[in-house]
């Protein structure tokens, strides 16, 4: 059965969104989101890694400023941070 490109793209996006939802709590919000910002455009065929990296960084900083600094909302904890804490 032939699947059109747009359907394939939709399925890729839906699958990655599901994986993101599954990983956002165990990995931590910022880690999972940063990975998503890079992985999803790449999976959809975007090839300018530097561009995606810059947009991801700017966006994550904005999210951090709004949600963690300004509104002080608790988001899923970063697994990486507790890893460093355990190592020290």
């Amino acid at each position: 059965m032939a699947i059109g490109i747009s359907t394939a793209q939709m399925i890729i996006a839906a699958v990655i969104a599901t994986i993101y939802v599954a990983l956002v709590v165990p990995l931590g919000f910022y880690t999972a989101s940063f990975l998503l910002m890079l992985a999803l455009p790449m999976a959809l065929g975007f090839r300018q890694l530097v561009y995606a990296l810059i947009v991801a960084l700017v966006f994550m900083v904005l999210i951090y400023l709004v949600f963690s600094v300004l509104l002080e909302k608790p988001l899923p904890r970063e697994a990486l941070l507790s890893l460093f804490a355990a190592g020290a």
Binding site: F29, S33, M37, L71, K73, P74, L75
Partner: peptide, 21 residues
């Protein structure tokens, strides 16, 4: 001028924050 594929993950992230909080 922002490519649409970069918007896709950004909105997904905003959705998750919004729902989680």
């Amino acid at each position: 001028r922002l490519p649409g594929v970069l918007l896709v993950p950004s909105i997904l992230i905003l959705m998750c924050v919004g729902v989680y909080v």
